[in-house]
Simulated scan of single mutants.
Amino acid sequence: MKKIALLMSLCCMAVSTAQAAVQGKEVNYREDGTILKGYIAYDDAVKGRRPAVLVVHEWWGHNEYTRKRADMLAAMGYTALAVDMYGDGKQANHPDDAGKFATEVSKNMPLAKRRFEAGMKLLRKQKTVDPKEMAAIGYCFGGGVVLNMARMGEDLKGVASFHGSLDALTPAQPGKIKARIISFTGEDDPMIGADKVAAFRQEMDKAGADYRVVTYPGAKHSFTNPAADELGKKFNLPLAYNAEADKDSWQQTTVFLREVFGGK
């Protein structure tokens, strides 16, 4: 009888494990009449409300890579929203279009802020989210977006930028930044040279920010994206995947998020 009870218990555990998994769903939300097409991911095995993380896409737009990162965050126990900063889910298949889409948003910070905050508002409404516990990560264009949101004093626990632009339209002011910051860049990335890293450090120091900059020798732009090698060759761009830098930056981000959320 004890063996039968044990087998039944193990079977129930197996069924429960099979049913508990990362759930992902497409969501439409709005900013001033513009439809934004996002993706929310969470693990239904996690009970109650939990911290939330916004994921901001590369200059190619909201795509499967962005959703993959949202799923990874959900597997870590967070609720993640892959946002749409371009509107209507626009994606670029050529650098010319990507540059155009990214410039339209990055040169218009009030617009970027409204679209970012629309994502925050959507997340706060989710039953799986603790509205007081929110962070953001971003890649390439998205890395620049989350850094600028921190500069503007968005109510975030932390932001992580992966090979994101370090340029600021308006430099951070002392006492303005609420979020802790971590930035990952490649030392062989011509788009984010050592001079820009040095200027960013100086800006953060003057602003009194709680920040950390991590640089990877030999890493080029878009080093976290496995598709970077193919895209670099196709469009003759200095893009390249770096598995070691990708793994290390994600591990450091995992620790960073636990720290900013107080171990949650």
Rank of each mutant, 00 (worst) to 15 (best):
Y241V: 07
W250I: 07
K206L: 03
L239D: 10
K233T: 05
H221G: 10
F256D: 05
S222Q: 12
Y216P: 11
A219S: 03
Y216S: 11
P226T: 01
R212H: 15
F235G: 10
N225G: 07
K206F: 13
V213Q: 14
W250Y: 06
H221A: 14
G208H: 08
D205V: 05
Y211E: 09
P226Y: 02
V214M: 12
T253H: 13
D189W: 10
F235V: 00
D246A: 14
Q251V: 01
A198L: 06
L237Q: 02
D210W: 15
A207E: 09
N236C: 02
T215P: 13
A207K: 14
K233D: 04
I192T: 15
D205F: 11
A209F: 14
G186H: 06
N225H: 08
D210Y: 15
G186D: 05
D189L: 11
F223K: 01
P226Q: 10
W250N: 10
V214W: 15
R201Y: 08
E230D: 05
Y211K: 04
N236G: 06
M204Y: 06
V255M: 09
A240M: 01
E244G: 06
P190F: 08
A209S: 15
F235K: 04
F200T: 11
I192K: 01
Y211N: 04
G232A: 10
N242C: 07
N225A: 01
G208S: 11
V214Q: 05
Q251P: 10
A245S: 04
I192Q: 00
A228N: 07
A219V: 03
K220T: 07
P190S: 14
T185Y: 14
T224W: 00
A198N: 00
A228M: 10
A198F: 08
D205L: 13
V255T: 06
M204K: 02
K196G: 12
G218Y: 04
A228T: 11
F256W: 09
E187F: 06
K220A: 15
E203G: 10
G186R: 02
A227M: 01
Q251T: 11
Y241D: 08
N242L: 00
N242D: 14
V213M: 12
E244Y: 07
A198T: 01
L239S: 08
P217S: 03
P238K: 13
Q252D: 11
D188A: 15
M191K: 00
V255S: 05
D248I: 03
R212D: 13
G208F: 04
K206T: 02
K247S: 04
F256G: 09
T215I: 12
E259I: 07
I192V: 13
G218K: 12
A219N: 03
P238W: 05
T254R: 13
L239C: 07
T224F: 13
R201A: 15
N242E: 08
A240R: 12
L231R: 02
A245I: 04
